[in-house]
Amino acid sequence: MGSLLQIENLHVSVEGKSILKGVQLEIRQGEIHALMGPNGSGKSTLAYALVGHPKYEVTAGKIEVDGVNLLDLDPNERARLGLFLAFQYPVVIPGVKVADFLRHAVSNIRKPDRKEGEGLIPMREFRKELRERMEALGMDTEFARRYLNEGFSGGEKKRMEILQMAMLKPKFAILDETDSGLDSDAVRVVSEGLQKLAGPDTGVLIITHHERLLEFNKPHHTHVMLGGRIVESGDSALAHKLHEEGYAEIRARHPQAAAENAAHEEALTATTAS
């Protein structure tokens, strides 16, 4: 049996506002899960809470990997345990080269007890591996020398996230709308890249509005989020159906969650508009 990521009755607030209201989810290494749902349902909140963003406050419930409580751990410790988030909006780090950043990241993940200043993985070995991974993802190796995400196009940023996943080989990868804002070529590249990576050693949670990513990475399980909880789960057919028909039926079956979702979505719109 591979590792198990367990999310139980998870409640999360952001700036005092309750967003997740009892999320229940189990992901095993080797499984692909799709997480779908309308705007404001809490999908990204779940992603951030899992990796430990300080603004996302867990008010109840638990997150465990093989029984280890993640809530007591900093984001870097969670990463060292094998958690990975492909960011919806990857952050620019000026002046830090992709290769240097990744060499530090890889060294920490592979030597979880490493302290700052201690040895990094050997340069030659690292370079070789990085070059191979970049070539496999169809990336120009010149990117290794560029500053992390600086001046990258949307597609390049997303591909960089997949490259990081390839180098860090996480046990559990959460992909937060990795397919959004990309043209169809870029979506194909990212999907194929993920397909190569998602094997028996990786549990994947794909958060998406679209179906493209799922065509290449057929989910074993599909979950629908509404109003801060998972209201329905099914197999890959559910993802297809939701993509075809939208969330009207789901809303009708879960009026309470739909109402909470609508209220939250309205608040989000108001904040954005102001």
């Binding site: 963003h53 870097n76 960011f87 993940i109 860090l168």
Partner: peptide, 13 residues
């Protein structure tokens, strides 16, 4: 957000 991004990649604060 830069610090968090690095930490999410296993790098200490």
């Amino acid at each position: 957000e830069q610090i968090f991004y690095c930490m999410a990649r296993g790098i200490s604060e």
